[in-house]
Write a protein that binds this DNA or RNA. Structure first.
Lengths: 220, 220
DNA sequence: CATCGGTTGGCACTGAGTGACAGGATACTG
DNA sequence: CAGTATCCTGTCACTCAGTGCCAACCGATG
């Protein structure tokens, strides 16, 4: 039923536009009563976004069935959404065409993506101690979701573009790398491993000796 | 008027709760008609968020009146929001108390923050070439907004906590640093400054000599 | 058959949001 | 000053989202 409603709704909206398609219209087209429609979708806009509820479950699932660097686990979990989009490519493309021009729908979509973000953030902050950890978890989650969002958007607007999963994997790597070397660290910036020394040399065309020299000069 | 409405609305909502406060109630309390109320706030929830429209302008302003590393400019611009919160601390605290338990209001707030994000993203991607630049702009904007959001949230829940501007500055630094050394770069990862050499030493208790030694060994 | 939990439909109601129109205030012009 | 254009407000009427309530129905189970 759920998916019947979704299909009928999309057809009607494609034909008449979203604002001109009432809950009554959709229910009628699907052969149910208006009242029942609102039992399936307490918010009218969500007829078009029922898939996200499923993806959300899938993401949550994947968070628990993998053990690795937390950011990578989170990223891998998010791929469930890409998988969903790929499987349902036809629907998802048509949807995006009707969502884009309607602010109420765009807003609703943003809020769905927000769900993923809070899910990831709570996962990422689970094994982080202290306030800073929770903050960084939110930041990383936001970055991951922005990446996912961009990947999906690009996939939708250029059907024959880059492979979305590959692009996402690439972005995920970049994000994970970024977070690895700075204050945006999982286990807090330093105090827990005070004796550790890390050295990063970027884009160097210099020899080790010359670098050592630079360090000498920079020391204070 | 605008601010009168805001004040009356907050009082009523504090007293009866949001769902039980109709647009009619608010308009009446402010001495205007319901119709006029909707002229000020096409969406009822926005009575409580009128300040964001102003902040948004301030942020946009600041984006143009500073020249520096783009991420830092963006961060500096966002501080306008913190300034606003600090100036209007009383209102903003009472608001947060009524917003937190009401999902419709939380959602609306999320969408306001989304506005900042798209604003920053479009600024950040302005001088970025190519697809990658636009993607990274979105990611960075999302990270900055998550940071701002966390800062404000923490400020609201613990009145006597850390200085929000200081905390934000710190997070901004972290984010800017993260982006500086990896693929998440503004002007592309490296090729434009191939001769630059950067060295970062983290949490070192070692001397410069010992570090130079490490580099030697790591060299391949 | 009886009945019991879950789903549906019908009905009525509240309240958000909007279009149309009619004053009323204000400012500008000669 | 009178005349007029402009903007703001209130009134009325309407559509439609969303919800509570109750009655009917359906399938399973004893």
């Amino acid at each position: 039923m759920n998916s019947v409603l979704r299909a009928r709704a999309l057809e009607l909206i494609e034909a008449r536009g979203f604002e001109a398609t009432t809950a009554e219209d959709i229910s009628q087209a699907a052969g149910i009563s208006r009242r029942t429609f609102f039992r399936y979708f307490p918010i009218r806009e969500d007829v078009l976004f029922s898939d996200h509820a499923a993806y959300l479950l899938a993401v949550e699932q994947r968070l628990t069935t993998r053990h690795d660097e937390p950011i990578l686990v989170a990223g891998h979990a998010l791929e469930a959404v890409i998988d969903g989009y790929l499987l349902d490519a036809d629907f998802v493309r048509r949807r995006s065409a009707v969502v884009r021009p309607v602010s109420a729908l765009r807003d609703r979509e943003v809020l769905w993506f927000r769900e993923y973000q809070t899910l990831l953030a709570s996962y990422l902050s689970a094994d982080e101690r202290g306030t800073r950890g929770a903050i960084f978890a939110q930041i990383v989650a936001a970055a991951l979701l922005a990446a996912l969002n961009q990947v999906l958007e690009r996939y939708l607007e250029t059907p024959d573009g880059e492979d979305p999963k590959a692009l996402f994997a690439e972005l995920l790597d970049d994000i994970a790398d970024s977070m690895a070397d700075t204050g945006l660290r999982g286990r807090g910036p330093g105090p827990e491993h005070p004796e550790r020394t890390g050295v990063v040399v970027i884009n160097s065309t210099l020899s080790a000796d010359e670098i050592a020299d630079l360090i000498d000069k920079a020391e204070r």
